[in-house]
């Protein structure tokens, strides 16, 4: 995957793809393994955080599509990964046949007010679409 996430535009596109692929594989008999080189730095977080299965400690948080249609949030979200979280949210989208989108935050270990405000802004933006 490394060579197709060199630029911010590529990273956003691939992060979106990763979210949709996670949704697809969560409901169908398909498994996929995505590999990224560490040299990508923050781009690794951007793309890897959209996966349900991630090596421990690789990303501070995960936000991924689940088989029940919800978005699972895991890990810790604070100022240090605020930009990555907001970029991840931009790639999250409800399934075409779902009228609502649920974020399951029961496994979040820490989330600060900035991330909560980002979630609120995301919800507001969905209403405007």
């Amino acid at each position: 995957m490394t060579d197709i996430v060199r630029t911010p535009e590529q990273q956003d596109a691939v992060a979106c793809y990763e979210f949709l692929l996670e949704r697809y594989t969560s409901r169908r008999p398909l498994s996929a393994m995505c590999t990224y080189r560490f040299e990508l730095g923050d781009a690794v977080t951007q793309c890897v955080c959209m996966h349900a299965a991630v090596p421990v400690g690789l990303t501070p948080f995960q936000g991924f599509a689940r088989d029940d249609g919800a978005v699972g949030l895991l890990g810790e979200i604070d100022l240090s990964c605020q930009v990555a979280f907001e970029r991840a949210l931009e790639q999250v989208q409800p399934a075409p046949d779902d009228s609502s989108l649920i974020f399951d935050m029961s496994a979040i270990r820490f989330i600060d007010h900035r991330a909560l405000l980002a979630l609120d802004a995301y919800a507001q933006s969905l209403r405007c679409r």
């Binding site: 501070p60 810790e76 604070d78 100022l79 240090s80 820490f110």
Partner: peptide, 8 residues
């Protein structure tokens, strides 16, 4: 000079 996560 450790991260906020480490402090938590």
């Amino acid at each position: 000079n450790r991260s906020a996560a480490d402090a938590r």
